[in-house]
Design a protein around this nucleic acid. Structure first.
Length: 350
DNA sequence: TCTGGGGTCCTAGGACCC
DNA sequence: TCTGGGGTCCTAGGACCC
């Protein structure tokens, strides 16, 4: 028996949950996002069913664009508590297997397992999830999280796929660098400027050259990704959030300084209440302002000591706001809190 | 396509101190 | 008078992910 990392990825999670609640919509183009009003500006789709995707509507498409492209689509409001509940049911199913389970958002989890037949286990997991939640998932099998994550993508929809060190080169070498988990459009573009377009080319690149271009940590890490390496440890201890934020895009730009300050105060009070509710103290406050048409700037204030006092946090947010030049219309305001982290537990000292 | 909301981590530069 | 190197903290921004 050997160990494997499995990545379980629910197929079309939000849309699938909505179709369970509205079975009559099956087979129709459905778009989920915002409050479900497709005429509302500055709102985007959280997800879209296959029928809607075929009409050019994807997650991230503005709802007004979606309405233009697909006037007969059904628009549903986003309902996070419902997705939270469905996710919890799925994770409970996964935890019934003899596996370490690391939850990775609503619709994903990594499992650390020991077995001689990971495909059979993957099929068992899919069957259990389907029987107990009526949801479909894809399962990737790898030696580490990176491989398993990519494999579940290849398995979609509803499939099982194995990608390990043994088959990495044959499966990945020909692909563009942004096929790797952690390389997006920007980094792929910079790599292309260096003549590195494929996974194979990146894997063979000079680490020192990459470090010079992307920094001492990121540079070598990129090559590491291209070699199919990655974290293999599945962590079952609960994640401790680093911070929390609230932001709002306004339907119409704000220009009145008093109104802007009032909005920042409200967001700061919300963020403080969230922190207090989570039993966490705030050490730094960041104010985010997105000016029209789409220029985003931040200012932050480090607090003298960790706090959950709303007046202190609000004051710090208003201080940060005062450092902006508010001479342009504002489309978004946000307030973020960095949390004090628990003291690191000491491991064996050298 | 006129571009949500909520996260994570990394980098670079400056201040400050020894 | 001019010149160091290292460490740490803080700030702002960028990139990526779901």
């Amino acid at each position: 028996m050997r160990t494997w990392v499995l990545h379980v990825d629910l197929d079309q999670f939000i849309a699938a949950v909505e179709l369970l609640r509205h079975p009559e919509l099956r087979g129709r183009p459905v778009v989920v996002g915002g409050d479900g009003d497709p005429t509302r500006p500055r709102t985007v789709a959280a997800t879209a069913t296959y029928e809607a995707r075929a009409r050019g509507v994807h997650s991230g498409t503005p709802l007004r664009t979606a309405l233009r492209r697909c006037p007969d689509a059904v628009f549903l409001p986003s309902d996070p508590p419902a997705y939270e509940a469905a996710s919890a049911r799925v994770m409970a199913v996964l935890r019934d297997f003899p596996a370490d389970v690391e939850v990775w958002g609503w619709d994903e989890a990594f499992l650390g397992v020991r077995t001689d037949d990971p495909e059979a286990l993957a099929r068992d997991i899919q069957r259990a999830v389907r029987e107990r939640t009526e949801l479909s998932c894809s399962v990737g099998i790898g030696d580490n999280k990176h491989q398993a994550k990519l494999a579940s993508g290849f398995a979609k929809p509803a499939g099982v796929h194995r990608l390990t060190g043994d088959t990495w080169a044959e499966q990945m070498n020909h692909r563009p660098t942004d096929a790797l988990w952690g390389i997006g459009a920007k980094t792929a573009g910079k790599l292309a400027e260096l003549g590195l377009r494929t996974v194979a080319e990146l894997a063979a690149a000079d680490p020192a050259g990459l470090a010079g271009r992307f920094g001492p940590t990121n540079g070598p890490w990129l090559r590491y990704l291209a070699l199919g390496k990655g974290e293999a440890e599945v962590v079952t201890t609960p994640w401790i959030p680093r911070g929390h934020s609230r932001e709002t895009t306004y339907r119409e730009d704000l220009t009145d300084p008093a109104e802007i300050a009032a909005q920042i105060s409200g967001l700061a009070r919300q963020v403080t209440a969230d922190a207090a509710g989570a039993g966490r103290a705030i050490i730094r406050v960041t104010v985010k302002v997105r000016f029209a048409p789409f220029l985003t700037r931040t200012r932050q204030t480090t607090l003298p000591s960790p706090t959950t006092d709303p007046r202190t946090v609000t004051g710090a947010a208003l201080d940060a706001l005062a450092r902006f030049d508010l001479n342009r219309p504002v489309r978004l305001l946000g307030v973020g809190a960095a949390y004090q982290m628990p003291a690191r537990t000491r491991t064996a000292s050298p």
